[in-house]
Simulated assay, not measured.
Amino acid sequence: MTEQAMALLCRGLDQLGLPWTQGAAEQLSLYGDRLLEKNQVMNLTAITDPEEVVKRHFLDSAALLPSKALGGRKVIDVGTGAGFPGLVLKILDPTIQLTLLDSLGKRVDWLGELCQELHLPDVTLLKGRAEELSRQKEHREGYDVAVSRALASMPVLAELCLPYVKPGGLFLAMKSNKTDEEIDAARAIIQTLGGEDPFVMDYLLPETEIYHRVVTVFKSRPTPKAYPRKWSKIKEAKI
């Protein structure tokens, strides 16, 4: 990663009010290098400028950490793709017990290689469909927090993620700040799945004029056994 991108990363982490180490910054720099290298042969990101990777992937992912909701918790990143936000969170807070879930085997294999190179051997990797794995006993309501970033609309995302969260836990969805309609459309299914009314917080992406949003759902009750439904039903959700 370029010197300019590294300087941007450090400034941005400071703006978020996050403690960070030189070691973590170097891990993120290596992560960025490997992401852009692999992106030449695998579709991982449409963002190919190192400074934009820092702003739109690393700093955006890191914006979850000021909430203090993740430290020491068992966290699953649903539909992680190239590892966002989960892997960034783990690098910056090694106490997180992280599981990365993605449906594409090639991405999961690459993430495994990346975790080894970043010296993160305790990250758990899962390959499979989110709506199927959450029915397995070892994953059903087995996590303190489920996170997801730019994966689907809120009604769909809630049904994919909340079954992983134990009662008393949280679901954190990273969204655009122009998602009021889809959040309103998700309120009924969130209640059905055992969640409380969503709490919305917008934040300014460091070193930009872009506002993004974290939608936080507290889960107070177990998810009914009928959920999640089959994908053909889930994707019918209207926004």
Score class of each variant (00 low, 15 high):
D197Y: 06
T21C: 03
P66W: 06
A46K: 13
L87H: 01
Y211L: 07
D109A: 13
D184A: 15
S153D: 13
A69H: 03
I210A: 06
A150W: 05
Y31N: 01
G194W: 08
Q4E: 15
K178Q: 15
V200Y: 02
R11W: 00
S103R: 06
A69E: 13
L64K: 00
C161W: 01
R213A: 00
L8A: 13
V78L: 01
D93A: 00
E207G: 10
T95M: 02
V88A: 05
M42P: 05
E196Y: 06
R129W: 02
L8M: 09
I91W: 08
K55F: 02
L111K: 04
R73Q: 15
T45W: 09
A185M: 11
Q22E: 15
L104C: 00
D14L: 08
Q22W: 09
G169M: 06
R149Y: 10
I47E: 10
E51D: 14
P85N: 07
A46M: 11
T21F: 01
R129K: 11
K90T: 03
L104E: 12
A188S: 15
K137A: 14
L125Q: 05
L204P: 01
M174A: 12
L151S: 01
M1E: 09
E131D: 01
A146P: 09
K74Y: 02
A24R: 03
L9T: 04
D109M: 10
L193C: 12
V123R: 04
D184W: 06
A62S: 06
P85T: 12
Q116F: 07
T208R: 04
A186M: 12
K166S: 11
V156M: 07
L111V: 09
L118Y: 09
P224Q: 11
A188W: 08
E196K: 13
Q4S: 14
K235M: 08
I239V: 14
L92Y: 01
L36R: 07
G83W: 00
D184L: 13
L162T: 03
A188C: 09
K106V: 07
L59C: 11
V215P: 01
R140G: 04
R187P: 03
K137R: 15
R140D: 04
P94Y: 03
A186K: 08
A146Q: 05
K137G: 00
G194E: 04
A63D: 03
A130E: 00
D33I: 12
V53L: 06
C10S: 10
P155Q: 10
V88F: 05
A46R: 14
L157M: 13
K230R: 14
P155M: 07
D49W: 02
L35S: 04
G105I: 00
L59V: 08
I189V: 15
Q97W: 00
K178Y: 07
S232Q: 13
A130T: 01
G79Y: 01
R229L: 07
D93P: 02
A69D: 12
L8T: 10
G72K: 06
R34K: 15
V108Q: 08
I189T: 11
K38S: 09
L28G: 05
G112C: 12
E3L: 12
E207C: 12
T99E: 02
Q40C: 08
L193Y: 10
A46H: 08
L170R: 03
